[in-house]
Write a protein that binds this DNA or RNA. Structure first.
Lengths: 206, 206
DNA sequence: GAGTCATGTGTACGGTGTTTACATCTTAGG
DNA sequence: CCTAAGATGTAAACACCGTACACATGACTC
């Protein structure tokens, strides 16, 4: 029991994020509705405003949390790669990053939809720290590409811009699976196409 | 003047779509709000329900319209490709499809966000015609890939699944540009990375 | 000309994010 | 220890939203 059921909740900010995480997991970012979440926590609707500037700020916090979980899942998948020739190993790691990205999206569609730049309002200028906050999953990708260079499997000149090609491919595939035509296909077929897509982009960047 | 400013509007369905298109163009799908649009057309909020089952139905109609515009824009870009060796030409066409897709997204971000499977509510099962309605832009991609096979530049076995890899790459890139980190970069740099991504995926599918 | 049906309006309900003013608890300083 | 300040909760209200239901209007058919 972390709540003190008195006037002051004591741990609201954390529990708001947790409840929002649970809601998003079931039904995506639109399920993060302040009134519903505060109701769950037996707290007035406005209580949330003591911890978040507005709804979007809560969503952002949730997104950050999800990104960490996602990076952890991807990292775990990378660990199960046996050693071998450095270049082959580097390529396998990169492959694991891509398949891990897609795998997380398929395993946790609600979370995935919440994690990255959801379709926001049109008149939005991202505030400031554009280059500062790098999503942990993206960092994994950067590292994998750098390792590929270090292993001599990718030239320095071809290295520049490769991250965008890779991220584009896996992110787009995730969208197609979660909300596009690929959602109609059975799991094994989707897995096949996912591997095809990841392998192709890895081949392509060389 | 297409309106008759009497009790019956006379052309409401079409004008609803048009107004929704204009709103979406400025600020994306969230800007398609029934009350605002019906207000513009000097019509009661419920009037829309005589032509669309609900808000989503209107959005779907708008999306379909945008997809047509998009395919037209992409097609136009393909026309400006001079003749040459069949395989080179086929590859150039495919490249134009990809760059056209991304180009449209950058030129009309609000429309692009509305055109495809926007992040919907979690508890949604797409109703029925999964395989039936193929977005026109996607058809262009299919044709370009088939042409690549016909030109002998892509084997039959490598053909299967190639559309998903290609679509994934360009769609993902569009997301990264519109709502992701790439939005912070200047236009020429983004164009460079777009070309890189498209070229890489085309190389990769072979 | 009468009646039917498509298409519009009025009113109302339940939901939302957010603001403003006020209540309560915690905690630091004299 | 007591008090003032600041952090954190509540209450009421506002301005929206999508949508259901009953009713009004007008166009087209027999």
């Amino acid at each position: 029991m972390s709540s003190k059921d008195s006037y002051h909740h004591g741990n609201l900010r954390a529990e708001l994020i947790e409840a929002a995480l649970a809601a998003a997991r079931r039904s995506g970012p639109d399920a993060i509705v302040l009134r519903s979440i505060t109701r769950q926590l037996r707290v007035s609707p406005n209580a949330a405003y003591r911890h978040f500037a507005d709804r979007q700020a809560l969503i952002d916090a949730v997104a950050e949390s999800i990104q960490s979980k996602m990076a952890a899942a991807m990292h775990e998948r990378m660990l199960s790669i046996e050693a071998g020739p450095p270049d082959e190993r580097a390529r396998a790691q990169l492959r694991a990053v891509g398949l891990g990205y897609i795998g997380f999206a398929r395993a946790e569609p609600g979370w995935f939809d919440t994690a990255f730049f959801g379709v926001r309002d049109g008149s939005e200028t991202v505030t400031g720290d554009l280059s500062a906050r790098v999503p942990p999953p993206f960092e994994l990708l950067i590292d994998a590409l750098d390792a590929l260079v270090a292993a001599g499997a990718l030239s320095q000149t071809r290295r520049v811009g490769a991250e965008w090609a890779c991220w584009s491919a896996v992110h787009g595939f995730a969208q197609l699976v979660l909300h596009g035509p690929l959602s109609a296909l059975d799991d094994t077929t989707v897995t096949m196409f996912a591997e095809r897509t990841v392998d192709d982009i890895i081949t392509g960047i060389h």
